[in-house]
Write a protein that binds this DNA or RNA. Structure first.
Lengths: 192, 192
DNA sequence: AGGGGCATGTAACATGTTACATGATTGT
DNA sequence: ACAATCATGTAACATGTTACATGCCCCT
């Protein structure tokens, strides 16, 4: 079977389950939401992966169009594989989250830099949350299984995440600056 | 200079800025918090990377101990590089977040599976949030620059994130089940 | 003296990225 | 007819992972 921690084939399966697409269309999909927020991939990894998946029976070519384009659809085996992967609770998975890494590394900056960095985060997360709120307001309620609504659960997830990050950044700033203010007060007191 | 999107050397720099360590100690560090929540790395990538970083003057060996152990410290150039990387706002960075990918792919599951999956998420996020809350309660307030407190900002970040995920999962469940209840009501109404 | 953990490394393999490459179709 | 975009691919390189490999030191 497929390795538990291979994400690209599963991302492709998910998209193909919702709606059959060509490699080219999948590539474009990865240039927008899914690629910018969840998993990046270029056509040079997508095309070989589709061929491999076709060999393994997870997808099949349902239509050949102009310019040699091939439309792929998920097979029954493909659906089963995505389901297996989603419910696979083997958390030996390797984390690789640059955002969170930066959060850890804030502790390695000196206080002024840390606060400057956090202000940037606060600003950025507020923007992103607002952006997603706008996107969600522009579309109707979420309907499971509606291809048009694909990714809206993820969008709401993102919106809440960004709001949480915003709150956290502001909290973190008060932690550091509050403490700095404290220190300068006590050092003045000691000095006098 | 170093590529903007290489995270391992920067993770190592961050740890070495806080406190000089050997490759072995760094490896162990990656087995606990930072490796489980932010960035995974094994000794087979850490040792070669340290050698490369030493060649490039980002770190230096400050002590050679028993069993051929070498203690590394960040150089001034290393500190500057970490700072540069932290503030590098070039967001051409490739996202690769399996968690978020799964959120996207929920839309590809049928409603029963989606709800089951979300229940799992709700449970897991509540557990993780509680775990971090406990960890945070057990340690004192955060003091910037205190090596003992390294990662506490990240811990609070994680706690808030998990709480947000929990709230989202419960909201998402009501979205789907509420909608399913609606549907069965209306189909009964249509049938009668 | 021997087991367990400390401490580092190399080699083969899998995966992913960048650069290079080609040709078909559509719209103007 | 020509430019833009559609549509797919290969090859060289960089990176990361797994398996294999070695030896030292400390404790009992």
């Amino acid at each position: 079977m497929y390795d538990a921690d291979m994400s690209l084939p599963h991302a492709l399966l998910g998209l193909l389950i919702v709606r059959p697409r060509s490699g080219y269309e999948l590539t474009k999909e990865f240039e927008s939401h899914i690629g910018r927020h969840a998993w990046a991939a270029g056509h040079t990894s997508i095309y070989p992966e589709l061929n491999r998946m076709a060999e393994n029976g997870l997808v099949e070519v349902t239509h050949e169009g102009a310019r040699g384009s091939r439309t792929y659809a998920a097979t029954e085996a493909g659906r089963a594989e995505l389901r297996r992967w989603m419910f696979d609770r083997d958390r030996s998975r390797k984390v690789r989250n640059e955002e969170v890494l930066r959060m850890f590394l804030i502790s390695a900056l000196d206080p002024d830099d840390a606060v400057a960095y956090l202000r940037g985060i606060a600003e950025e997360s507020a923007e992103k949350a607002a952006e997603l709120a706008k996107l969600l307001a522009a579309t109707g309620p979420i309907v499971q299984g509606d291809p048009e609504k694909f990714g809206l659960l993820a969008a709401e997830y993102g919106r809440r995440q960004y709001e949480a990050v915003h709150g956290w950044a502001e909290w973190a700033i008060t932690q550091i600056t509050g403490q700095a203010a404290e220190e300068s007060r006590s050092s003045r007191a000691t000095a006098s």
